[in-house]
Design a protein around this nucleic acid. Structure first.
Lengths: 158, 158
DNA sequence: GCTGAAAGCCCAAGGTT
DNA sequence: AACCTTGGGCTTTCAGC
């Protein structure tokens, strides 16, 4: 499954995809790395097959897109049901992201967006219905994501 | 800046980009919506210019990519410095994501990955150095993201 | 495992309605 | 605004190394 850890070339490919996964074409990447475009394509296919690359998503400014309310629900879920719940949670309209924490009583963080308070209330009810206990409901002020994590493991990648 | 709110066609474009921002080309999108490929391209350019589309990122399984440790740092930052800090935080190697909360004393959540405990310790020190008070450090068990949020605002998109 | 070439497909620009 | 055309560029596949 993950016999080959990923080498220097893979790391550069991942890095360039992180910068712009839509515009950085195989051909463009091949120019910044000393392999051909078809090799870049094959390596990306391999990274996808191994589950390292799981998809390509646009980053959206939800506020400007008509969803001004961003909320973080801090929840408690029975440990046993946690994984099953997480999947179901993504089915709730407005939910963007679910994080399961290893420790602590409040062990699940759910990020959601809505166009109005009505939406947020509906989501909260839904979460309760699914089986969460919603401990806290915090408005998000801003979110920043890393455009480009450095791909240089301390184990120097051998 | 955001005079035109975004119509039904824009919403379908965003939806298809959310499913696969790399493979769903303008031409492919034009087939699923009754406009030409060049119109799709121009609408995407407009959405980018208005800041609704902010980038295209690969979703990476960091664990398989050699970063088995995922941590959530729950921090407190002086309200005034919060925004400036957030930007600086993204510069710390290993940091993936920063969320600013509107309320509560622990007002910033920072998500980071590392190859070893050493990395995590280094990040924690760095956050402290930058000016955060790190209140909690929780191992993340799993994270799920929404592949595709339904783009239908309750205001029915006029 | 990588390369290179060819066929088919895609994109961006400019002109038209 | 949206459309069409078109030249240049891209992706994919496959033979060959």
């Amino acid at each position: 499954m993950d016999g080959v850890p990923i080498d220097e070339i893979d790391r550069i490919i991942l890095h360039l995809l992180q910068e712009d996964a839509r515009r950085n074409t195989n051909a463009e990447i091949s120019r910044q790395v000393s392999v051909s475009a078809s090799t870049v394509g094959k390596r990306i296919a391999r990274l996808e097959k191994e589950g390292i690359l799981k998809g390509y998503r646009p980053e959206i400014d939800y506020e400007r897109a008509g969803f001004p309310l961003q909320v973080l629900f801090v929840c408690t879920a029975p440990i046993a049901a946690r994984e099953a719940l997480a999947t179901e949670t993504l089915g709730v309209e407005g939910v963007l992201n679910v994080r399961e924490l290893m420790t602590g009583e409040k062990n699940v963080h759910i990020q959601a967006v809505g166009a109005s308070n009505e939406d947020i209330t509906r989501i909260a009810h839904k979460l309760d219905e699914i089986g969460y206990s919603v401990a806290d409901e915090i408005l998000l002020r801003n979110e920043y994501s890393q455009p480009s994590v450095q791909f240089r493991p301390t184990t120097d990648g051998k």
